[in-house]
């Protein structure tokens, strides 16, 4: 008997005594898991998104010129960018040294990575990345700073809505703040394997 057959045989034997008495699937409404816990006055989705993003130590930037200024103020001039975005925003990103192909042998040369995000989640301040829209998984992960560009109307209100919009993309990633750990004595440190700074720039 193959391991597969053995496992299925054992599962069926284990479940046989429950025949007819199995627990039914409990229907539940999206509202059950959605939180409305945010300060009053944040009526717009994008405002709630910004509030939550900042609460998880993410950085919210409005528009490409603001992004360029932010990068320059941080002293970051050399980075990776999605080739399509480079073309699209060439004028806005002047003065930055941008590479559109990520050379793995120089992975630490890229101080930032700019890629296209797929959306956001207002409820949690989450940025959604997908394989089809991300030009390079490494470009969105390895540099100290990652910037995801999204449009305001790509922000979902909550987690159930974002999950309901899943397509057949092979890699959907929810990013909720910068990479972090509290493994050493419970002390919060940001930037373990992924970005130490996570930005979302609205375009």
């Amino acid at each position: 008997m193959s391991d597969r057959e053995a496992i299925f045989k054992d599962i069926r034997a284990a479940l046989a005594p429950l025949e007819g008495k199995q627990t039914p699937y409990p229907e539940w409404a999206d509202e059950l898991v959605v939180t409305e816990n945010h300060p009053a006055g944040l009526d717009k989705r994008v405002d709630r998104f910004k509030y939550r993003l900042e609460a998880v130590h993410g950085t919210f930037v409005q528009g490409m010129p603001a992004l360029r200024d932010w990068l320059k103020a941080e002293g970051l001039t050399k980075g990776y960018i999605d080739p399509t975005l480079k073309e699209q925003f060439a004028a806005d990103l002047e003065g930055l040294e941008l590479e559109t192909e990520l050379d793995r042998s120089r992975i630490d040369d890229y101080t930032f990575g700019i890629t296209r995000g797929t959306g956001g989640i207002a409820e949690t301040g989450t940025i959604i990345l997908t394989d089809r829209k991300t030009s390079s998984r490494l470009g969105a992960l390895a540099p100290w700073v990652h910037v995801a560009l999204i449009k305001e109307d790509e922000i979902y209100p909550d987690v159930p809505a974002a999950v309901a919009a899943f397509d057949d993309d092979p890699s959907i990633v929810f990013v909720t703040g910068p990479s972090k750990t509290a493994d050493v004595e419970g002390i919060l440190i940001e930037g373990v394997h992924g970005p130490g700074k996570q930005l979302c720039c609205l375009i």
């Binding site: 990520l102 394989d131 089809r132 092979p170 929810f174």
Partner: peptide, 24 residues
């Protein structure tokens, strides 16, 4: 687990990388 609304990275993997994707 940690008192977070969501853990920082939640990945939903549905197969090998997409055709356009150089990594993965």
């Amino acid at each position: 687990a940690t008192g977070q609304q969501l853990t920082v990275y939640t990945q939903f993997i549905g197969g090998p990388h997409a055709l356009n994707q150089p990594d993965g």
